[in-house]
Simulated assay, not measured.
Amino acid sequence: MSVGAQLSVTDLRRAARHPVDYPVIAEHHERGDLKLHISNISAHGFMVDDASGLARGDRVIIRLPHIGRIEAYCIWTRDDRAGFQFERIIRVDDFVPMIDELQPNPRLRRRR
C-alpha cells in the first residue's frame, strides 16, 4: 500500500502568480509547526523561498486571510524553494480580497 500524497500534478504554470511577502506558520504532520515565507501565490498554489527540509509530497496546512485554513501538498523543490498545490482551487470571490490584503501595493497586483 502506498503512503503519502497522491498528487495530480497538472501543468498549472500558466496560472497568474501574484508576488507577495507573507510569512506563515505551517502545520506539518511530522515536523510540527514550520515558519515559511510565501513569495508568490495563485488560486492553485504558492511558492515558498525558505523550504529547507521539505520534500515532494509533504503536506502542510496554512492559514490565509479570507480563506482560513487550507491544506497544500509540495509538488516540487529546488534549492531553498518549494512549490505547493492547494487541496482545492480558491474561488475568485475569495482570492481577490485575499490578494488585496497580501499585496497592498496596487502597482504589484495583476490587472483584473
Rank of each mutant, 00 (worst) to 15 (best):
R56T: 11
I67C: 01
R78E: 05
A72G: 11
R88K: 15
I38S: 01
E30I: 07
I75H: 07
E87Y: 06
D49H: 10
V60S: 03
F95K: 13
H29F: 15
D94C: 13
N105V: 06
L108V: 02
E71F: 14
R91K: 05
N105E: 13
L102N: 01
D80F: 05
F84D: 09
G4P: 10
Y22I: 15
L108S: 05
D33Y: 11
R78H: 06
R78D: 04
L54R: 08
A43L: 09
V48P: 06
I67V: 11
F86E: 10
F46K: 08
D50R: 10
G53A: 14
L12W: 06
V3S: 14
D11R: 06
D93N: 04
R112L: 15
I99W: 01
I62W: 12
K35F: 15
S39R: 14
P23C: 08
G68I: 05
S52Q: 11
M98T: 09
G53F: 09
V20C: 12
Q103H: 08
I62K: 05
R110S: 05
R107D: 07
V20P: 08
T10R: 14
R112E: 14
D93H: 08
R109K: 13
V96R: 13
K35T: 12
M47W: 03
H44W: 01
I70Y: 06
I70N: 13
P106H: 01
V60T: 14
Y22Q: 15
D49P: 05
I75D: 09
H29M: 08
R81T: 15
L64T: 02
I67E: 00
L102Q: 01
R112C: 10
D49V: 09
A26I: 04
F46E: 12
I90H: 09
V96P: 07
